[in-house]
Amino acid sequence: MTGIVKWFNADKGFGFITPDDGSKDVFVHFSAIQNDGYKSLDEGQKVSFTIESGAKGPAAGNVTSL
C-alpha cells in the first residue's frame, strides 16, 4: 500500500505514515526503511509499505520511497 509520511523523528528513529486509503495512521520504525545509508523519512514524503504485526499493534514494514 502507499501513503504519506505524517512525521518522522530521526533522533528517536520512528514516526507515522498516513495511508492513502484513509485508514488509521501506521507506526513506522527506522529498521523498516529499505534504503541504503541513513534510514530516515521526511514529512510529506510518498512511500510504499506493507502492514506488519508489531508488538504494540500494526506497524509499517518494507518501507520504500516513491
Rank of each mutant, 00 (worst) to 15 (best):
D25E: 10
V26D: 00
L41W: 04
D42E: 15
T64R: 14
A55I: 13
G61E: 10
F8W: 14
S40Q: 11
T64E: 10
G15E: 00
A60E: 01
N62C: 10
F27N: 02
K12A: 09
S23C: 08
G61H: 15
I4T: 14
V26P: 00
N62P: 02
V26R: 02
T64Q: 13
F16P: 00
G37N: 10
A55D: 12
L66E: 08
S65V: 15
I17K: 00
W7D: 02
I17V: 04
F27D: 01
S40P: 06
V63P: 01
F16N: 02
A55V: 13
V5T: 03
F16Y: 08
F14I: 08
P19T: 05
N9E: 05
G3V: 01
A59F: 15
S31G: 06
E43V: 15
Q45I: 08
S65L: 15
I33S: 03
D25N: 07
D36T: 12
G22P: 03
K6S: 06
I33T: 03
F16T: 03
F16A: 03
E43N: 13
Q34W: 07
G44I: 02
W7L: 04
E52Q: 12
I17L: 07
S40I: 13
D20I: 08
L41V: 05
Q45S: 10
S65D: 10
A59D: 04
L66M: 13
T18G: 05
I33F: 06
D25H: 05
V26Y: 05
A32T: 07
G44V: 02
A59E: 15
Y38C: 15
D21S: 07
S23Y: 06
M1W: 09
N9R: 10
I17R: 00
S40C: 15
T50W: 09
S23I: 06
F27I: 03
S53K: 13
T18H: 08
T2F: 07
G22T: 04
G44L: 04
W7S: 04
N35P: 07
D36Q: 12
V5P: 01
F49N: 00
G61I: 15
G57P: 07
P19M: 06
K39S: 07
D36E: 14
K56M: 11
M1A: 08
G22C: 09
G57Y: 08
K24R: 13
D20V: 06
A55E: 12
D11E: 14
S31I: 05
S53L: 15
P58T: 11
D42P: 09
H29P: 03
L41F: 05
K56L: 11
H29M: 04
T18S: 11
D21Q: 06
D20Y: 07
D42L: 15
I4C: 14
V28C: 06
I51L: 12
I17W: 00
K46R: 13
L41S: 01
G54T: 15
V28R: 00
Q45V: 10
M1S: 08
K6M: 04
E43G: 14
E52T: 13
T18L: 12
K39Y: 08
Y38H: 12
A59Q: 15
G22E: 05
M1R: 11
Q45L: 07
Y38A: 12
A10V: 12
S31L: 08
I17F: 01
F8C: 02
A60N: 01
V47Y: 02
Q34Y: 09
G3R: 00
F8H: 01
F27Y: 10
D20K: 05
I51G: 03
S65G: 11
K12T: 06
A32K: 09
D20R: 05
